[in-house]
Design a protein around this nucleic acid. Structure first.
Lengths: 292, 292
DNA sequence: AAACTGTCTATTGTGGATAAAAGACAAAAT
DNA sequence: ATTTTGTCTTTTATCCACAATAGACAGTTT
């Protein structure tokens, strides 16, 4: 088992959806661009579709024979990339399980646990180490530094510096910059969710990420944008874990966002700074409260 | 060849220096602590020393038989860890060689070039990617983003934010904090080097790193401290490459440091900020000048 | 009793092998 | 004259094996 063909399976599933909507599929390069995979994978998909009698394929003609049935799809657990599986598994261990700071992390044990080779686990840990939650002792184990109060404070300190800077440059963006229309769309979504908050408050998490990423991107600084990955992953797993008062917290954050958006539109630096600080302060409080 | 025994060879060389200074070596655990390796490696070293008739070893007695000769040492090229070799080789390629932004990086080719396995190259690239100079296309190659003017500007922008913050917290450190005495030592070295600048200006690079790292460390923020790694590696390889006016540049930077140090001692926030900004501005100029 | 040594086991670092996926290039079709 | 397809080569992702290194434990020495 050198490599799982998850790219193929995932692209196949997505291609089934395309197939459900037309009577014949486009050219191989076009499909490749649409699905974001190479022609090699596209041809494997087409071959499989032919086998399943979904498609009559001969050179350029790709005629749909029947609608896809549920059993044509690959099960979702087979389409996850190995690194996603490792990430989820690892985060569950360190966030949910009793993971005390200072604990040792054992590559081999992790690999056995997840049912994978050590190389992939190692590469994951190396990539993950930039989040500041683990640290390597060369020729020896990794150390879990833990999701502690200090971690949260250090994280938010940098976040605040970066976001204040980014918000200031956002307000200075040219009026025809595409970010403004993305901001319009984001604002509209805020209103939509607020109007039906009881049912839709769970959509906040994703919208929050989209909004803050937009702000950070306007800094045009790769280090600032990259740092937002850390925020994203921390909040992502955190939301799954801590759900007390989610509705109230999210409603409040949405209001703060609207305020923040209005400040950005005003292009008044002092107002932007005030709104940004206000929101970041309450975001920090939320994070800290959930830690102990 | 599963693993090069560079840890052993390097520790052996360092142990030879210890051996040259005493008539008998201490216990295995003590040696392990001193050299920073495990007892397994210590015992390998002692065995080798016995073979070379350097030592009479029987349980606790480890009597030195003769002084080490130059040929007892392992050659320095055999004591470098593989990741150091890969790093140097890679940096030479992207800084010296005609490395245009957008160029593809090929793991296999790099590995063949360096004469190593692909796994090690891959792990190096993953670790290196946090420096923002390369980017991965999943299932495909890496892209060199290049050591460009934009890179330098983005890097220094973050550096300035972080260092201003760190300098402010340094000035607020308790008077008995160990950082103050380290600052004294660093200041003394500045005076020493300035007094003999024509001969010793090359020592600046290392002292510069030591000084700024001390400042950054006082932020007590792992993200700020970790970020300094990027600065370090960029300046490290940069100094090796660009040597025009090194003497003048270094002398000027040393003077700025002294000013900056005096400001820190004054604990006057306004003065600290001014001195820090002044120095960072000239550091940025130096870096930018060397780029094109 | 505390520290040290002998011995043994477990884990890490690294090269090599292999299926999956990307991608190059010429021939074929519009 | 593009765009598409058929075919082939190259590269990446991943597992596995094994030497180097770390680390555990019991017996031994001071």
């Amino acid at each position: 088992m050198a490599k799982q063909n998850t790219v193929f399976k995932d692209a196949f599933n997505r291609c089934l959806k395309l197939l459900a909507e037309t009577s014949c599929l486009p050219s191989e390069p076009e499909l490749g661009t649409t699905l974001g995979v190479s022609r090699t994978t596209i041809r494997a998909i087409l071959t499989r579709m032919e086998e399943l009698q979904l498609l009559a394929w001969d050179k350029r003609t790709k005629v749909v024979l029947r609608q896809p049935k549920p059993e044509d799809y690959y099960p979702p657990e087979e389409t996850d990339s190995l690194s996603d599986i490792i990430e989820r598994s690892f985060m569950r261990r360190i966030l949910a399980g009793g993971a005390e700071p200072g604990m040792q992390i054992n590559e081999l044990e992790l690999a056995r646990d997840i049912g994978t080779g050590t190389t992939s686990v190692r590469e994951f840990l190396i990539r993950f180490s930039r989040f500041g939650l683990i640290e390597k002792r060369p020729n020896s184990h990794w150390i879990l530094k833990g999701f502690t109060r200090e971690f949260a404070l250090e994280l938010t300190e940098v976040r605040e510096m970066f976001e204040l800077r980014s918000a200031a440059s956002f307000a200075a963006l040219a009026p025809d910059h595409p970010a403004w229309s993305e901001l319009d769309r984001i604002e509209a979504l805020h209103h939509e969710i607020l109007a039906d908050i009881d049912n839709r408050y769970k959509e906040f998490s994703e919208l929050d990420e989209r909004f803050h990423l937009l702000v950070h991107t306007s800094s045009s600084n790769r280090f600032i944008v990259d740092f937002y990955d850390i925020i994203t992953i921390v909040f992502h797993y955190h939301y799954q874990w801590n759900k007390t008062n989610a509705r109230e917290r999210n409603a409040r954050a949405l209001e703060e966002h609207l305020d923040y958006i209005a400040a950005l539109r005003s292009r008044d630096p002092a107002r932007v700074e005030a709104a940004c600080r206000r929101h970041l302060r309450s975001a920090r409080e939320t994070l800290l409260q959930s830690i102990q």
